[in-house]
């Protein structure tokens, strides 16, 4: 097997800080001691794969998948779309993306969520898809509502969709959140603010994209995802011991 090279070390400066007193739960859930850093090994460079055969036809359509197509969910209809790339700019094809979100009123279908906004009987709140050969993906869904959460006395989450991506290596595994262009709550959210590099947070904000919007049907938001790349130089193809 060809050695694709080790993973490019993670730049932790563009990621959220693990410990942030404004996000209270992080205080007791962040390691005190430094991480152990070393070059990646096969355990991190390989990863699980998922076939298209596991997925159902409506899995990436959150407007219809909870009712199996019987009735559509309430809310502003949107297409969420984009590409998965690695740090070298190469598309990441055939990788699983999973999303979950609140309904249009800001309520999750989860027993721990007791917000006043009612459940939508026609909305489950999750979806999944596999990127195509160019790393492209899309989901049809409704725009999630903002919701309050117990943290400081009056904290609200901006509208957001949770996203989980695999890539091709276990070391690329990533969970993040997509925010929406123009949402004033982004600048007040202690979870968004765990990312200290503003340009890094800005890359989580999806722009409105009329090029993919379908007249009289849905608006579109574009969200590209960049996963860790792998380092390979001509010098790394040298023979053992040379």
């Amino acid at each position: 097997m060809t050695d694709m090279g080790p993973l490019i070390p993670r730049n932790r400066a563009i990621h959220p800080v693990p410990y942030d007193p404004d996000y209270k739960t992080s205080v007791s859930r962040s390691p005190n001691l430094p991480l152990l850093s070393m070059e990646s090994s096969p355990s991190e460079e390989t990863g699980p794969t998922f076939g298209h055969n596991k997925l159902g036809a409506l899995d990436n359509n959150l407007i219809l998948n909870w009712t199996k197509g019987a009735a559509p969910a309430v809310g502003e209809r949107i297409l969420m779309h984009g590409r998965v790339l690695d740090e070298m700019g190469r598309p990441v094809p055939n990788t699983l993306i999973e999303i979950w979100q609140a309904n249009a009123g800001g309520r999750y279908r989860h027993k721990k969520d007791s917000y006043f906004a009612p459940l939508d009987p026609n909305f489950g709140g999750c979806g999944r898809t596999i990127t195509d050969e160019n790393g492209y993906y899309e989901f049809l869904t409704v725009r999630p509502g903002a919701y309050p959460w117990p943290n400081r006395a009056n904290d609200w989450r901006p509208m957001h969709i949770h996203i989980s991506v695999y890539g091709h290596s276990f070391g690329q595994r990533l969970i993040t959140q997509m925010y929406f262009e123009g949402d004033p709550l982004i600048n007040h959210c202690p979870i968004a603010a765990t990312i200290k590099d503003r340009s890094s947070l800005d890359r989580l904000v999806a722009p409105l994209d009329f090029s993919k919007s379908r007249p009289l049907d849905f608006l579109a938001y574009k969200f590209d995802i960049v996963l860790r790349g792998r380092r390979q130089t001509m010098f790394e193809n040298k023979l053992e011991g040379m």
């Binding site: 690695d86 989860h110 969520d113 999750c126 949770h162 959140q177 990312i195 860790r228």
Partner: peptide, 26 residues
């Protein structure tokens, strides 16, 4: 020419509905 990795965000309290729907009661 390189891109910058997408920043992580917490999986949050409702991660199970997305990744383990049966466990989450769905």
């Amino acid at each position: 020419d390189t891109l910058i990795e997408t920043a992580s965000q917490t999986a949050g309290p409702y991660v199970h509905i997305g990744l383990m729907p049966t466990y989450a009661g769905n």
